[in-house]
Design a protein around this nucleic acid. Structure first.
Lengths: 137, 137
DNA sequence: TCATTAGTCTATTAAAATGGTAGGGAATAT
DNA sequence: ATATTCCCTACCATTTTAATAGACTAATGA
């Protein structure tokens, strides 16, 4: 399951996407509109900014905004950023790979199946963008 | 990611499947062969027994054994049993469904995408059995 | 320049989940 | 009877999750 953090990130990002024309959006506005704890959301948006997904502006008229158009922001990237691996096992993770301790991957049947699950999952997540989860698209 | 509990369960179950002909297998044997903490494994096997996947026998000559042939033990079932939902969001889970608080599912784009992910994942997990993850099959 | 606005950063906290341990109790075979 | 083996309840330590607090920095504009 995705963490609340990631779920909130999606809420916030879609809000930003749906209001792109309005210029920078206040954290507090997103917090109110999408019912997310203000301080928690602060952390999340900051993290998204540091990863190059969002831009920000301080002072009056400031706020957060998308740096790239929604169709260029992949869902897999967001999940990996905030939740870590998408794969079900460390030994089949593409981005967070860790070797199995007690089984030889080459002959491990689980490895094969879980790789297949990963591929099927990524087939969706890597090819869908923020744009695909907006209300109007 | 699957918890250690679930990963250990798979290790134990494949061991049991690969040694079905030997009659009941001791927890301690599985623990040693698959390098799993004995006491932790006890809990796991007990849980699998209570769910009707394993049978057990006490006293000398006792141990755990598969009740059904490996090809009838689905991977999705084992994961759900020990780790809970397979879906990435509560509102798209088939077995552990929970309503979204702050979004209307009918018009929620995330809901659509995550349902697709779930279906793609289940397409693999529901159609693969313990037999498919054994070394010799 | 100075007050206001708004993001940045570090630390803390409470609760839950995870992974593992301890130690009897109950059933069974010999 | 007794050794064997699973059964059961409780407990514990650590990590993760979700959220909060508060001070700091940067930008704006009157």
């Amino acid at each position: 399951m995705l963490s609340k953090k990631t779920q909130y990130a999606f809420h916030a990002l879609t809000y930003l996407a749906e209001n792109q024309d309005k210029g920078p959006i206040l954290i507090s506005e997103i917090s109110e509109m999408r019912k997310i704890s203000l301080k928690f959301l602060e952390n999340i948006l900051l993290e998204l900014k540091k990863s190059g997904i969002l831009g920000s502006k301080k002072g009056k008229g400031g706020g957060y905004y998308l740096i790239k158009p929604p169709e260029e922001i992949g869902l897999a990237k967001i999940i990996r950023l905030l939740d870590g691996p998408i794969a079900l096992l460390p030994c089949v993770s593409l981005n967070y790979y860790e070797k199995c301790e007690n089984c030889q991957e080459e002959i491990c049947g689980l490895n094969v199946v879980m790789s297949e699950v990963r591929d099927n999952t990524l087939k969706v997540l890597e090819n869908k963008s923020l744009k695909d989860v907006l209300r109007e698209h």
